[in-house]
Nucleic acid binder design. Structure first.
Lengths: 255, 255
DNA sequence: ATCAATGTTCATCACGATTGAACGAAGGGG
DNA sequence: CCCCTTCGTTCAATCGTGATGAACATTGAT
């Protein structure tokens, strides 16, 4: 994976600048130059290039991430089979349960929230666009359970198992065991492992479509506050989630 | 505005490739190379660079836009003052009216849908991430009404007034007149000008915050199907929208 | 008015992006 | 089964171009 130097350095630098802008928030050219240890004039040319393509905007001296990114991000999502067929199911689940329902896709060993729908009683929690580790939430664990074990090891090596709450699984073999039971049951649970006060049920969605289909694994979930999410309720929701997942898989094969 | 050649060509080429991928959808390296008339190996290096930064992903031979774009897009939105304070109002408007409520921001003479909320009866219509002309919808017209006339002319010159329905305003002076009355009333209407069957009311939101505030103009709206959106209903909704807009403006000054 | 900080332009040079050629792998057709 | 095409990938050589420092322009602060 560690391809040495056969990339285009100028392009990479431009993208690095874009990334820095995401971290820094709105910033002046000099601030970014300082942050990245680059000459002011170099920064100037890069920003001009990025601005010309609307990836950044300059507003009286401050540079900001441009809306082209939002536009492209949504095109990226619209190209996903899981999204195109899964969206309706997410809407449906949230409406039926009143809770928050979420769709995730795996990419490079991370999980990305791709779409969500808030039911009437749902926790107010914005997800879309977030990048998550796969080990600390139901969606991610459901994804891991569908990946070949070697790949799982790779991912855990590369991404680690950072702890976000006292309940996060940080031990590799514990996680492996959990993954095995998830694979058997077809659903994954999360009781405050990623966020205190939040519990989830999730099921993986695999794209078996042939040809040039997007083979990546996704997942769909229902999430709610611990107060409402007793063990019984979670169990009761589980079949709904896995049904939805199955339906999505079927529909993806259909086309 | 036509800055000649002082940009970084490699970076620009990489970004062009990203753009091409957005247009083509999932594609092989050769397809993109053909499309842009570039050598296969050149394409290779660019794609490798973009992939290394997760702006594209390669899935058995096919390249796709990467989820990093979605991630960055949402960071871009989260940096917007209008979004941070306007989001809640959009949620509120949609809940109260049962319709679709939308938030827009102007950038480079276009309007970008930044956030939306669907009320219980709302039309199913996904907006977030879309780029719109400013002349053919209520949000855009509300924005135009807040911009200095010279700027409006520039924008109309650069972006034109394409027709999307028979009701679209394609005549410059008609639009100017409309804009004047919008400025007086404080709200803009759209009766099937951008999409047949869809009507909207919108009001502009201006950021008067000092310091390094994002001075751009935004707008908030309510949209619904023509069937439900009689003239009377639109008129009745107008004050709600402009109230919301005012509240957002006030809150933005507050910080 | 002076000074510091930042944005912007210019000319120079060394490095690196592009290019064509060539190899390896995969897939299809005869 | 082998040939042939197509595509992805690597390599070496060159020409072009991005980085750099210096200098000028602009702004705001003291």
């Amino acid at each position: 994976m560690v391809d040495e130097q056969k990339r285009i350095q100028s392009s990479e630098r431009s993208l690095t600048i874009l990334g820095a802008l995401a971290v820094l928030g709105p910033a002046t050219a000099s601030e970014i130059a300082d942050h990245l240890d680059l000459a002011r004039n170099t920064m100037h040319y890069h920003l001009k290039t990025l601005a010309h393509q609307s990836y950044v905007v300059e507003i009286d001296g401050q540079y900001r991430l441009g809306m082209r990114l939002l536009n492209m991000g949504h095109r990226a999502v619209e190209n996903l089979d899981v999204y195109r067929v899964g969206k309706a199911k997410v809407d449906e689940l949230s409406r039926q349960t009143g809770e928050l329902s979420i769709l995730m896709i795996e990419e490079n060993g991370y999980g990305y929230y791709v779409y969500d729908a808030h039911g009437d009683d749902a926790v107010r929690f914005d997800t879309v666009g977030r990048r998550k580790h796969l080990h600390d939430n139901a969606l991610g664990k459901a994804v891991l359970a569908q990946l070949p074990p070697e790949r799982v090891n790779e991912i855990l090596d590369e991404r680690g198992l950072p702890e976000t709450t006292p309940h996060t699984i940080t031990d590799r073999s514990t996680l492996k065991a959990e993954i095995d039971t998830i694979r058997e049951r077809g659903v994954a649970f999360d009781r405050e492992e990623q966020l205190e006060g939040l519990c989830c049920v999730a099921a993986a969605v695999e794209n078996r479509g042939d040809a040039g289909a997007d083979r990546r694994v996704g997942a769909i979930s229902i999430a709610g506050p611990t107060s409402r999410m007793s063990d019984e309720r979670l169990e009761a929701l589980a079949p709904r989630v896995s049904d939805a997942a199955n339906l999505i898989e079927l529909e993806m094969q259909g086309y």
